[in-house]
Amino acid sequence: MKRLMVIFSFFVVMTSGLAACGSEAVSDKSNQDVQTEEKIKKVSLELEKTEFESNDTGHFEISGKTESDATLYLDGEKSGTADQDGNFTISGELKAETTYTAEVKSVKSGFEEQKVDVSLAPSQAYLALKEAERKKEEEAKIALEEKQAEQTEADQLFQKAEASLNSTDLANAENYIATSKHLSKTSYTTRISDINTKITAKRQAAEREKAKLAKAETEKKQAELRKQQEAARDKSSGGNANGNGAVQGGGSSGQAPSADESTPVLVTATGSKYHKRKCGNGTYTQATLAEAKSRGLSACSKCYR
């Protein structure tokens, strides 16, 4: 009998324990179901509309309502937070000049995120603005290319002027700049001045060299003339001279001087004739026939008959 009581007591204990375990399992399962239901509840997300158009600068705004303090994302990028009433506005700039689809997402702890696709379209004013910008960029590009080409041409002209130090070449370079579309003469002032200085120095050096050569030529002619005069005097002193100091050049008296330009003659400071001998008053000096003719003197009719 005692043994039966022990077995019965053990059975009661085991039964109670299993019952208790079952109750706890049921309780845990109920809690998990409640939490799961809370997590799968989607956050509310309502938009004023699903098609939005930009303003004339490509800016757009998406407005709507969601859970209070929910975080809003546009194409995966955080774009703002809803206020306490759940109102929100997402601002952005168009990423394309054609209509495209973007994703708006609302996220809040304890809720399943909600997504809504919206259409973003460029306005006609924005498209016109972008077209004007492209046109302006193209014009700027063309202007830059033209300026670079003109700069290259101008550099080549200046290089030619610097190499030749010719005023005509420099004038060509300056005229090109003056008639160019994009160049300014003020940008080349220093270069022009430097070349002008070199041209002036070259011209002055050439003038000095020319004067030097001219002086040397004059001295050479004077030396030759002196030599001719000395030779004429030597020849005259070796011939016959009459009582009037007539110059006897070896020719017959009364004849005009020979064609030899070095033939000696007599001249006066103010007379218009050249003479073979002293045939009047005045101071006579000896000269060559060439010198007398160069002074415009003609043969004396008395001396040369």
Rank of each mutant, 00 (worst) to 15 (best):
S193N: 13
E174D: 06
F158P: 03
K181H: 06
T190A: 12
T190C: 01
N166K: 02
T189R: 13
S167T: 13
S180W: 03
Q156E: 14
E131G: 00
A140L: 09
S167D: 15
L144M: 14
S180D: 02
T168D: 15
K198Q: 12
K130D: 07
A149N: 10
Q156W: 07
Q148D: 12
E137K: 10
N175V: 02
A140I: 11
K141T: 13
N175W: 00
K181W: 06
E139D: 09
R203W: 00
K147R: 15
D169S: 10
E131I: 03
I142D: 02
A171H: 12
T190Y: 09
E207P: 04
A171N: 14
N175S: 14
R191P: 07
L157E: 09
I177Y: 04
A201W: 03
K181E: 06
E207K: 10
R208L: 05
H182L: 10
Q148K: 09
H182T: 14
K202L: 01
L183G: 05
N172F: 10
I142T: 11
L157A: 13
S167V: 15
A205H: 04
Q159K: 09
K198C: 07
E133G: 15
K141W: 08
E131N: 05
S193W: 01
S193V: 05
K185L: 10
K135A: 00
K136R: 05
I195R: 10
T197V: 07
L183V: 04
K141L: 11
A161L: 07
I177R: 02
A201C: 03
N196S: 14
L157I: 11
Q159T: 11
H182W: 11
Q148N: 11
A178N: 01
